[in-house]
Amino acid sequence: MANEISIIILTYNRSDALNAVLNALAQQETIPSEVVITDDGSNASHTQITQSFLHSQEWPFRIKYIWHPDIGFTASTARNQGVLNSGGNYLIFLDGDCIPRHDFVSQHVHQRRQGCFINGSRILLDQDITEEIIRRPELVQNSILFWMKQRFFRRINKWIPMVARIPPFLRHASPHFKWSGIRSCNFSLWRDDFFKVNGFDEAFVGWGHEDADFVWRLQRAGLKRINGYWSTEVFHLWHFEASRDRESANARRLGERMTNPTSSYKAEQGLLEGSSHRSEILFSV
C-alpha cells in the first residue's frame, strides 16, 4: 500500500493504557492509515475490554487486533506478527503504555528518509500522574505549563523536548551502532527495510536486547540511525518492571553476534522462519 502508514502497537494486560493510546492516535495531526494491535497474550478480561472499546466508537483508521497465547515475554514474535498483519509501506512501532502527543505521527513522517530508521524517545511518568492520565487521557494534550508543573513536582523526568524541537533538516543520520537510547517502544522504518533484515529475531525470549539486536542488524545492513529525540517523545506510563531473568542470556547472544565477523544481518528466527505459533485475529474493521 504505497504511502500508507501502519502503527504497530505491542500490548499485554494493559487495556486501560491501550485505550488511552488509541484515543491519542485518533487525534493526531497526521492520521495513520491503519493501527495493528498485537497482543502478547493478555488474559480474557483485558482482551474483552479492548474489543468492547474498539466497538464503542468509529475510528479514523483501519484497526486490526491480533492475539496469541501467553507463552512468556515474546515481544519479537508479537511485533513480527503485527507487521505480517499490516499493509503500510512505512511502519511506526509503539508500545501500548506509551501515549503520543498530537504531532507524534507527523514528526516521524517529516523526519523519515530512505536508507534510515528513526529511534524515538520517551518521557517517563510516575505512578501518580499515570493513574491520573488513565482516568483522564486528554491530559496528555495539556499545555506546556501543565507539564512544567509536573516536572517541578518530579512526576515526570523531563519537559523541555516538548517545546525545544530540533527540525528534520538538522537531524544527523549515523551509520555507527550505539547501545544507548534504543527504544523499540517508539521506532519507525520503511517496510522494505524491516523485511530486509528478516524482522525481529524471535530467538530473543524474555526481557532485554531484542531491540538492540534489531538496530545492530539494521545498521549492519547499511541503514543509518536518526535519533528522533526532542520531537517524537511519548508519555511512558508507569508500571512494575518486567522480570529480567533472561537479560544476561540475551545480552550474551547479542554480544556473540556482534563479535562474529561472519554474522548475518538477517534474523536467525525472524519473519521467514518464525515460530510455529501464529496470532489469531480477534477484531478487524
Score class of each variant (00 low, 15 high):
Ala249Phe: 13
Met258Ala: 10
Glu247His: 08
Leu237Pro: 09
Phe235Tyr: 14
Ala249Tyr: 09
Thr259Phe: 00
Thr259Lys: 03
Ser231Gly: 15
Val234Ala: 08
Leu237His: 02
Asn250His: 10
His236Ala: 10
Phe235Ala: 01
Trp230Gln: 06
Gln269Met: 13
Glu247Pro: 00
Thr262Leu: 13
Arg244Val: 07
Ile226Asp: 02
Leu254Ala: 06
Trp238Ser: 15
Pro261Met: 06
Ala242Glu: 15
Ala249Val: 09
Ser231Glu: 07
Tyr229Ser: 12
Glu241Cys: 03
Val234Tyr: 03
Asn260Glu: 08
Tyr265Ala: 07
Asp245Lys: 14
Phe235Gln: 07
Ser264Cys: 12
Gly228Arg: 01
Glu247Asp: 05
Ser248Phe: 11
Phe235Asp: 04
His239Phe: 11
Tyr229Glu: 10
Arg252Gly: 00
Thr232Ser: 11
Glu268Thr: 04
Thr232Trp: 12
Asn227Pro: 00
Thr259Trp: 00
Arg253His: 09
Ser248Lys: 15
His239Cys: 02
Ala267Ser: 14
Glu268Ser: 04
Gln269Asp: 00
Arg244Asn: 12
Thr232Pro: 03
Asn260Ala: 04
Gly255Phe: 03
Ala242Ser: 13
Ala267Cys: 07
Ser243Gly: 13
Thr262Met: 08
Glu247Asn: 05
Lys266Glu: 12
Asn260Met: 12
Ser263Cys: 06
Gly228His: 02
Glu247Trp: 08
Thr232Gly: 04
Ile226Lys: 01
Trp238Val: 05
Arg252Phe: 07
Phe235Glu: 02
Ser231Phe: 04
Glu247Phe: 09
Met258Gln: 11
Arg244Gln: 13
Gly228Asp: 04
Asn227Met: 11
Glu256Trp: 00
Met258Asn: 01
Arg253Phe: 01
Lys266Asn: 07
His239Thr: 08
Glu247Arg: 12
Tyr229Asp: 15
